[in-house]
Design a protein around this nucleic acid. Structure first.
Lengths: 192, 192
DNA sequence: GTCTATAGCGCGATAGAC
DNA sequence: GTCTATCGCGCTATAGAC
């Protein structure tokens, strides 16, 4: 944890910039200032910007899905699972000095600027994140701690879109306080 | 309607580009090709890019809120109002050849790149859109065609975030078909 | 109101020394 | 693995002719 090799520092700086500003507003120049290294040196680690973005998506995917899987493994109560799942989004928003959106939510908005490999991996992130959420919802309904009609995947799609949308929108107004109100509504949505 | 003066053509082209690619990927060069005019001529109408973006937000705000107000005025059934409100988002997604996000949702993602005037007007758009939605929800609950607990504004915030998030996400996977599934879940969420 | 021409900068990327 | 130096391009924006 907290590796400080150059490659990791570049990834960290790039992720921070994209989550705040978007991929199209993130440049090698910004990175070189954040990491205190020359622009050309960044190209040694990531020949093209697409390479960098793809590496970022892969790392974020592994990190996020890993956290979700740990939540599912650690908790027995689906209500707690959902709380902690939503907590991951709130933690993203709060981490660092400025409000941050989800890396993949931001890249999803800028989808048309990405290469096809990046888009494919982005889709994978969205699918697996929603599949995990659907599994949690199904567990909870089977255990009768959640109540909702229809397909767990459809409800998961709604909750996921609301969480991603909220991260992008509350940065304009209301911040984390507003996010929490929204999360409360989501809890109510599936409450038994 | 359908004015074809240069200024309107520029606004139309800029809005299309931003809804598909984002503001940071939209350039005067792209606009000049879309409108078939020289780059410099665009600066006559909109001296800076910030001016153009502010004008776009103002126009979109007036257009969208105008449509919502018409829906509220024309319909007597809140269920129909909500259907048509969500229909505005679906229409945005479908209009033109490629899937489009909400102009303001996209700009919300790129918030940090915008000037403070643009941010203020963006906030106004979000607030008024959600206030109208909250009013529809309250009407429906009073008329007992909707059922939900708590503050209509909180539920409106959830629905609005889900709709904006959905527009951004379904472009990666599922498109309008997936949007409709999500809209169905939202209907169910408040159904009496 | 639109044009040509251009300034001035930041961008992604590469070559080659160390 | 990091550096200096540089290329070539696209960007926003301006000056001035028509």
């Amino acid at each position: 944890m907290s590796e400080s090799d150059t490659l990791t520092l570049i990834l960290d700086a790039a992720q921070d910039l994209i989550q705040r500003l978007g991929a199209n507003a993130m440049s090698y120049q910004h990175l070189s200032e954040a990491v205190d290294i020359r622009k050309a040196s960044i190209h040694y680690h990531f020949p093209t910007k697409q390479d960098l973005i793809e590496a970022l998506i892969d790392r974020y995917h592994a990190y996020f899905i890993g956290l979700v899987d740990r939540i599912i493994a650690e908790e027995s109560d689906p209500v707690r699972m959902l709380d902690r799942y939503m907590g991951l989004f709130e933690a993203t928003l709060r981490e660092g000095k400025h409000d941050k959106a989800c890396l993949c939510g931001m890249l999803g908005a800028e989808l048309a600027s990405l290469g096809e490999d990046a888009v494919r991996n982005l889709r994978r992130f969205f699918k697996e994140s929603q599949d995990r959420l659907a599994a949690i919802l199904k567990l909870g309904r089977d255990a009768q701690v959640f109540r909702f009609d229809g397909d767990p995947a459809a409800v998961a799609g709604l909750i996921f879109a609301a969480l991603e949308g909220a991260l992008l929108l509350v940065r304009a107004d209301g911040g984390v306080k507003r996010f929490r109100i929204l999360a409360d509504e989501l809890r109510r949505l599936v409450a038994a």
